[in-house]
Nucleic acid binder design. Structure first.
Length: 552
RNA sequence: CUGCCCGUAGCUCAACUGGAUAGAGCACCAGCCUUCUAAGCUGGGGGUUACAGGUUCGAUUCCUGUCGGGCAGGCCA
């Protein structure tokens, strides 16, 4: 509908001999019902260029709109808004559209089936996943679903560091625990990991357990002197645990990339020699530096440390070169904002390769920190992890659906307060239940009715005259526009907000109206509206990876 | 000290990227179940959008500065 209107407007403006692109025409959904179904400010935008009063321009645009039978009326309002009021038939046609397209309703082809990669979570295997990873997981996975729905060919990817200093640190920590060195003991590694889980790993290692890690089975022989074996075992143990957490969070990845693989396949060497031969490096203080300031970084960065090993961003650049060579049109990295300093470095490194990689490739979605509260007080630690709240604690305490909803429901760039008490309440306080309840309520009515559900997708002679019906129809018809803006903005929280509003419109309607009435045309008309609403709720929830229960 | 993000009702958050009278939910007050799920609905009070300037027909949104919070600025990731 919106697209149709835009085209109509475009033609009307062209016939005024005004140069304009179709993208410049913005159509809005007015907040107030008195402002019609759609509204545009295009006359005010054109006022400067045309040098005429906006209201005059608006009038000539209206006069030039091609004949059609969509509108009840078109008005000029305020400083020069053009407000469109659609005919009833045009408005209610959305119900049949939804019921015919079902789970495909709202889908679009903006992505043109091009390849896009979303990297998210990317936790290092040095401990259990924490809430921050959970936020990344919820946002990243919803983004993936949203972009698939928008016609992109999506690859979900997880990258982890299985090679650097942090892994050595993990190994030392586990080893210390194998030797029964307590975390308070002076002999325990100064920067070691102190959570109880380290003790669990050590115990399992000493017992000679084996870990089933993908296709590989990692065995331990309980040999305390074998650092390499401790390392492999610990990494496998934690990877295994993280996979379990992610599975419980209903998240699947298509590809796992290992930092070590970019050393093995010489990608790191390739990157370093390219940067060298392109003249973007220099030696200083026994180290090799990247002239990242030439690409907008605020200082140059060390690539190769004085001990001969590379800093973390070098394999990161190699990894992104690998992504580029795999042919992704777009790459989105979802990460915690505490990693924002890597953005400039990775992009600078890629530019230095002179491979014609676009300036803003890859894109980043950075999420801010999370505060978890319970009983009004901040929760800072989990017993197992020691210094932070784990994702599995949350899932266990409030469930997967509520956890996902709360973690995805805020703009990524604002700090989030996760209220465990609120997420746990099974009442109207809790938006997840509020939305799911709307879905279940509709299912209840449809079950009670017991008729042929498919017959609802036919046209029914009912005019939807009540205000609540009009508002609900308006809301569900906005779903395709929501998908477009949410995926353009990489902002899945918009889906969560929308679903709350949609559920609210439904609950009001439900409370006000009777569905199973004697008059069949009224009944079928109303049932098809709520059936369409249910479909919208289901489609929206599935974009967030949240279940749509038939009863509660 | 420098860079990035944020600052909206008592609390948690929106606001279609510059639009019309800034919206929801909690909390508070007053109502609605012999009728399809009350996990619901209806009504009410609550705001100088941190502050001060600027840009223009029009600013929560863009620019500058100040204040406050978070995160970075390690040859850690």
């Amino acid at each position: 509908m919106k697209a149709n209107l835009t085209t109509l407007l475009y033609h009307a403006i062209q016939s005024l001999n005004v140069v304009i692109s179709e993208e410049q025409i913005t159509l809005e959904r007015p907040k107030l019902i008195e402002h019609g179904d759609f509204s545009t400010n295009i006359a005010m935008v054109l006022a400067k260029q045309v040098k005429k009063n906006p209201r005059e321009i608006a009038q000539s645009i209206i006069d030039n709109i091609e004949k059609n039978n969509l509108f009840k009326k078109i008005e000029i309002a305020g400083a020069g808004f053009i407000n469109f009021f659609l005919k009833n038939e045009a408005l209610i046609s959305v119900i049949q559209e939804i019921l015919q397209q079902k789970k495909a309703y709202g889908r679009n082809t903006k992505g043109g089936n091009k390849k896009i990669q979303i990297e998210f979570v990317s936790a290092n295997p040095t401990g259990p996943l924490h809430v921050g990873h959970g936020r990344g997981a919820a946002i990243g996975d919803s983004l993936a679903r949203l972009l698939e729905f928008s016609g992109w060919q999506v690859t979900r990817e997880f990258y982890y560091n299985d090679a650097g200093a942090q892994i050595d640190n993990l190994t030392k920590s586990v080893k210390a625990r194998c030797l029964n060195i307590d975390v308070d003991n002076d002999d325990f590694p100064a920067d070691g990991y102190r959570g109880d889980y380290i003790k669990e790993i050590a115990d399992s290692y000493m017992m000679g357990l084996s870990i089933n890690c993908g296709e590989e089975i990692i065995e331990s022989h309980g040999d305390i002197a074998d650092d390499d074996c401790i390392k492999k075992f610990s990494v496998a143990y934690l990877r295994n645990e993280q996979d379990q957490d992610l599975a419980n969070f209903k998240i699947k990845f298509d590809v796992y990339s290992l930092e070590s693989s970019f050393y093995k396949n010489k990608k790191v060497d390739e990157v370093v020699s390219l940067l060298k031969s392109n003249g973007f490096t220099y030696e200083k203080d026994d180290a090799l530096w990247l002239k990242s300031t030439q690409f907008g970084d605020d200082k140059d960065r060390v690539m190769k440390k004085s001990d001969g090993s590379y800093t973390y961003f070098v394999p990161d650049v190699a990894y992104h070169l690998d992504k580029w060579e795999r042919g992704f049109h777009r790459v989105i990295n979802e990460q915690g904002a505490d990693h924002h300093s890597t953005v400039n470095r990775v992009r600078a490194g890629l530019q230095g390769l002179k491979k014609n990689i676009p300036l803003h490739w890859p894109e980043y979605v950075l999420h801010q920190m999370i505060t978890v509260t319970k009983g009004g007080a901040e929760v800072k630690i989990s017993k197992r992890a020691g210094s932070y709240v784990t994702l599995s604690d949350l899932i266990e305490e409030v469930g997967c659906d509520a956890t996902r909803f709360f973690l995805v429901s805020r703009r990524p760039d604002s700090q989030l307060i996760f209220d465990i008490d609120l997420a746990k309440t099974q009442s109207n306080d809790n938006p997840v239940y509020y939305i799911q309840y709307a879905h279940a309520r509709i299912e209840g009515v449809l079950k009670q009715w017991g008729g042929n559900i498919n017959s609802l997708s036919n046209n029914h002679p009912y005019s939807y005259d009540s205000l609540l019906e009009k508002k609900l129809i308006k809301k569900i018809s906005e779903f395709p526009e929501l998908i477009e803006t949410a995926s353009k903005d990489l902002a899945p929280h918009q889906i969560a907000n929308y679903l709350k509003e949609c559920a609210a419109e439904f609950h009001s309607y439900y409370n006000d109206s009777k569905f199973l009435v004697k008059d069949e045309s009224i009944m079928l008309g109303r049932l098809s509206l709520i059936y369409a609403t249910q479909q919208i709720l289901k489609n929206g929830l599935s974009l967030l990876g949240i279940s749509a229960p038939d009863s509660m």
